[in-house]
Deep mutational scan, measured.
Amino acid sequence: IRLYEREDYRGQMIEFTEDCSCLQDRFRFNEIHSLNVLEGSWVLYELSNYRGRQYLLMPGDYRRYQDWGATNARVGSLRRV
């Protein structure tokens, strides 16, 4: 999964292949505005340590956080399923 700091895949990008319990420890931002799921399925959590609202993401492109059903861009952790 590739996470981007801004909409439309702009700004700083980070790629994950494994679970991350605290996004801010690995990426200086806690807001993700766009992403690409390259393979497999992922769950994004609004808070760190896999807490808060959850969003199940299938392979595909998500140009804005609204595309995955979120009401804001906050992402605290993520897990591959």
Score class of each variant (00 low, 15 high):
Asp19Thr: 11
Arg10Ser: 04
Leu78Ile: 12
Val43Arg: 10
Trp68Tyr: 03
Ser34Tyr: 00
Ala73Leu: 13
Gly40Met: 04
Ala70Glu: 15
Val75Phe: 07
Gly60Gln: 09
Thr17Tyr: 10
Gly40Ala: 09
Phe27Gln: 10
Asn36Cys: 07
Leu57Asp: 00
Leu3Met: 04
Asp67Ala: 05
Ala73Cys: 10
Leu3Ser: 14
Asn49Thr: 01
Pro59Asn: 08
Thr71Asn: 12
Cys22Asp: 13
Arg26Met: 09
Phe27Trp: 05
Gln24Thr: 06
Gln66Met: 07
Arg64Val: 07
Tyr62Thr: 02
Thr71Asp: 09
Cys20Ala: 12
Ser48Cys: 10
Ile1Pro: 00
Arg28Trp: 10
Ser77Arg: 00
Arg79Gln: 12
Arg2Thr: 05
Phe16Asp: 03
Thr71Val: 05
Arg26Asp: 07
Leu23Lys: 08
Glu15Tyr: 04
Phe29Ile: 05
Tyr62Trp: 11
Leu56Met: 15
Asn72Leu: 15
Tyr55Arg: 10
Leu35Gly: 11
Gly69Gln: 13
Cys20Ile: 07
Leu23Phe: 08
Tyr50Met: 04
Glu18Pro: 01
Thr17Met: 03
Arg10Thr: 08
Glu18Met: 09
Val75Gly: 08
Met58Phe: 06
Met58Thr: 14
Leu35His: 01
Met13Cys: 03
Leu35Glu: 00
Cys22Trp: 05
Ser41Asp: 09
Ser21Arg: 08
Arg63Glu: 13
Leu56Ile: 14
Gly60Phe: 03
Tyr9Asp: 06
Tyr62Leu: 15
Tyr50Asp: 01
Glu15Arg: 06
Arg10Pro: 00
Arg51Thr: 12
Arg28Ile: 11
Leu3Arg: 00
Asp67Arg: 03
Glu7Phe: 04
Arg51Met: 03
Asn36Ser: 14
Arg64Ser: 08
Arg10Gly: 09
Asn30Arg: 11
Glu7Asp: 12
Tyr9Thr: 15
Asp25Ile: 07
Ile14Lys: 05
Asn36Phe: 14
Val43Phe: 04
Asp19Lys: 04
Ile14Arg: 12
Val75Ser: 03
Asp67Ile: 03
Thr71Phe: 07
Met13Tyr: 01
Phe16Thr: 05
Leu44Val: 11
Leu23Pro: 08
Asn30Glu: 14
His33Leu: 08
Gly52Trp: 01
Tyr50Val: 00
Asp8Ala: 06
Gly69Val: 14
Tyr62Lys: 14
Asn72Thr: 11
Glu15Thr: 08
Glu31Pro: 15
Glu15Lys: 15
Ser77Leu: 00
Asp67Thr: 07
Asn72Ile: 15
Arg51Phe: 04
Leu78Phe: 15
Gly60Arg: 07
Ser21Asn: 03
Glu5Leu: 14
Leu57Ile: 03
Gly60Met: 04
Leu38Gln: 09
Glu18Gly: 05
Gln12Gly: 12
Tyr62Glu: 01
Thr17His: 02
His33Trp: 10
Leu44Ser: 03
Tyr9Ile: 14
Arg79Cys: 02
Ser34Thr: 00
Gly69Glu: 15
Glu31Val: 05
